[in-house]
């Protein structure tokens, strides 16, 4: 029962998270901001539209949106949200590498239209992803050592409950994951999801030629991925939240997601966009954090 609910819960929470972030950012810049339901409305609208498709694009372009969303859904199926058990138990390596499948299609779709912007976005996206890969891998590897399991659900569920502040490696790993979250989900300071200047775009530049249902799928997928990361980090920081009784579990999950949305919103408001060439240093910092976390783990 719970298992069947997980993916729908993610699908529901994903636009909610995006809405929370927007709301938080608006609040911090003293604006009203769009209502929370706006993200749902936008997506709904996009899903009902037809598409305008570039003349030069091939089947790779057509396939990209389903692949992107499909993979995100599968990833959502493997990430514990409100219980230790998940519908799709997944090895953490497969989990990380599965993220490259939608990226492959998304970057290719960016190049497929023959537009300079698409290429620009793809190139940056691929660069950021490559640099984030070691950090992500090492941090999940560390979680695995803590939870004594290689399966994602197992490792999160296996973290012994206790005072989180007494476990620096956990904090370090969560920090690393948060940096990776910012990078992989095109948030400030790596990318600005709200920019309107094509030359500064990363993720948005790739999807410039997507429209209608394709764009809807991609936006949903992006939101889903952000939610998945949030669930991962909050699951790590609040291991207890995964073993709550069913009645409390769902509200707790929503709370966790909202909390991470707030944090992302605060961080985004408080930081400026980095220069592209600095992103590498940013992600290397993340990798080093992960290494330190592992060193701390083994020093025990």
């Amino acid at each position: 029962m719970e298992l069947a609910l997980q993916i729908p819960a993610y699908l529901v929470l994903a636009p909610f998270l995006v809405g929370i972030i927007r709301k938080a950012k608006a609040f911090l810049s003293c604006r009203q901001g769009p209502p929370l339901r706006q993200t749902y409305i936008d997506l709904f609208k996009l899903f009902r539209r037809g598409i305008v498709r570039s003349r030069t694009a091939s089947w790779v372009f057509d396939l990209s949106a389903p692949v992107i969303l499909g993979t995100s859904v599968v990833l959502a199926g493997a990430t514990p949200l409100f219980s230790r058990a998940v519908p799709l138990p997944m090895h953490f390596i497969l989990y990380i590498y599965l993220m490259s499948l939608p990226r492959f299609f998304q970057t290719l779709a960016g190049l497929d239209t023959g537009s300079a912007f698409g290429g620009l976005g793809s190139s940056r996206e691929a660069t950021v992803a490559a640099m984030a890969e070691p950090a992500l891998l090492l941090s999940l590897c560390g979680v695995g050592f803590l939870g004594k399991s290689q399966l994602l659900d197992g490792m999160l569920g296996g973290i012994p409950p206790g005072r989180i502040f007494l476990r620096p490696e956990l904090i370090l790993i969560a920090g690393t994951l948060f940096l990776v979250l910012l990078a992989e989900n095109s948030r400030i300071p790596v990318d600005d999801p709200a920019t309107h200047l094509e030359l500064t775009m990363i993720h948005e530049a790739m999807v410039l030629d997507h429209s209608g249902i394709d764009l809807g799928m991609i936006q949903l997928a992006a939101a889903l991925r952000l939610t998945v990361f949030s669930a991962l980090i909050t699951g790590l920081l609040f291991p207890g939240s995964l073993s709550l009784p069913p009645v409390l579990a769902l509200p707790a999950a929503a709370l966790k997601i909202a909390l991470s949305g707030l944090v992302v919103g605060v961080v985004e408001s408080g930081m400026a966009r980095m220069r592209l060439s600095r992103i590498a240093s940013f992600l290397m910092t993340a990798t080093v954090l992960a290494v330190i976390a592992l060193a701390v783990r083994f020093a025990r």
Partner: peptide, 27 residues
């Protein structure tokens, strides 16, 4: 993964049949 992508691709195909698809120059 295959099933999900398959479902989504068919959804997309059905939706496009209903809502139309226009081929145009790259933006």
């Amino acid at each position: 993964l295959f099933v999900t992508i398959g479902i989504l691709a068919s959804v997309r195909a059905v939706s496009l049949r209903r809502n139309g698809k226009r081929v145009y120059e790259t933006w």
